[in-house]
Design a protein around this nucleic acid. Structure first.
Lengths: 192, 192
DNA sequence: ACCTGAACACCGTTCAAGT
DNA sequence: ACCTGAACACCGTTCAAGT
């Protein structure tokens, strides 16, 4: 889990928690109990204080969810950085979605009304995709190619996590089929 | 809004609402206020009763959300039926997502813990896609092709609705680029 | 037979009072 | 300066009492 902030003030009584510990606890609760059960009470219990104390570190539940989304995107960007090519990158997205399905859904397909990460965090998570699709599609088509591959990967992973693939068949084969077709398609564009 | 059920019993006092009216009110509230604000109180107020009365028609909030998801898939299936080809179908998905973004997200990318429609409703919404992609990719590849196109369309629409396309560029052009590339890609498969 | 107010166990959030 | 219990306005849900 990425470090979000740190406090080291020396005060009469030492602090019993930190913004960092709160965000980490919220990330854990998100996966274990789902967004609806990510409550201020549950987070407080996990970090060892009472709910009202959380408001010394974070404005409220919505802001806490934003911080969780931003920590998730930071981690996703970190993993994406190590990708060797577009196929590898798509695979890393899928692996992340399976490890942390609730966080993945939170950042990639937040429902209307769900707090979302600030733009800079979303951009950070997409630069590697742009670089790698640019290698395939050429500079002029990098953005469209990135959108095509990202949309497909996000849709596939979301549907997989949501149990939308219920007609049988080999889901892993469908993934490989899809990546291959999409990468071919956006690579062809170079010849235009 | 599709009819979900109907009650016509003649009783001492005429019923003041119906399951149908409740589901319609819930669908409206979902779009206007978001899933988090789709409360039993709000639904009850809209149909003209108090919250406890709703429990005469529906087991609880989770079941009501399931019924909303199922009514949404029924409507989506109805619109899909009229599609002429895969490109047209993808366009109808996108139009539906823009008209009813919250319902679209609810059925296509429900977060962990969100109540979901029963299988039969999801299947009904995917038969047209299977038929049309089968025309392109051949019977043997219909399922994989349907998954590729559906995943891409769902991902694209979700990201568009969630405001994930913030790097500028022409989003409509990216849509047309994407459909064309994907349809080409899954059509090629026939030559295997 | 449906509808209701009251009640219960929860939420998020605020705030005066403790240390 | 942080932490807390109490309080407030909300939730979803149950149930006895009304009509």
């Amino acid at each position: 889990m990425a470090t979000v902030n740190s406090y080291t003030g020396s005060v009469p009584t030492p602090d019993r928690t930190s913004l960092d510990a709160i965000v980490v606890a919220a990330c854990e609760l998100l996966e274990e109990e789902g967004l609806a059960n990510l409550t201020m009470n549950a987070v407080a219990a996990r970090v060892g204080v009472r709910a009202p104390s959380l408001y010394k570190r974070v404005q409220g539940r919505d802001r806490l969810i934003e911080l969780v989304a931003e920590a998730t995107l930071t981690e996703l960007a970190r993993r994406a950085d190590a990708a060797e090519d577009a196929v590898d990158l798509a695979g890393r997205f899928r692996a992340f979605g399976r490890e942390r399905p609730a966080a993945f859904q939170l950042v990639m397909t937040p429902g209307p009304g769900t707090p979302t990460a600030r733009d800079e965090f979303r951009v950070a998570a997409s630069v590697t995709m742009l670089r790698l699709t640019g290698n395939l599609a050429g500079h002029d088509h990098a953005l469209e190619a990135a959108r095509t591959l990202t949309a497909w990967a996000v849709g596939f992973i979301s549907m997989e996590l949501g149990g939308s693939f219920r007609l049988g068949g080999d889901v892993d084969a469908a993934w490989r089929f899809g990546v291959e077709q999409i990468v071919d398609a956006i690579t062809v564009t170079r010849e235009d």
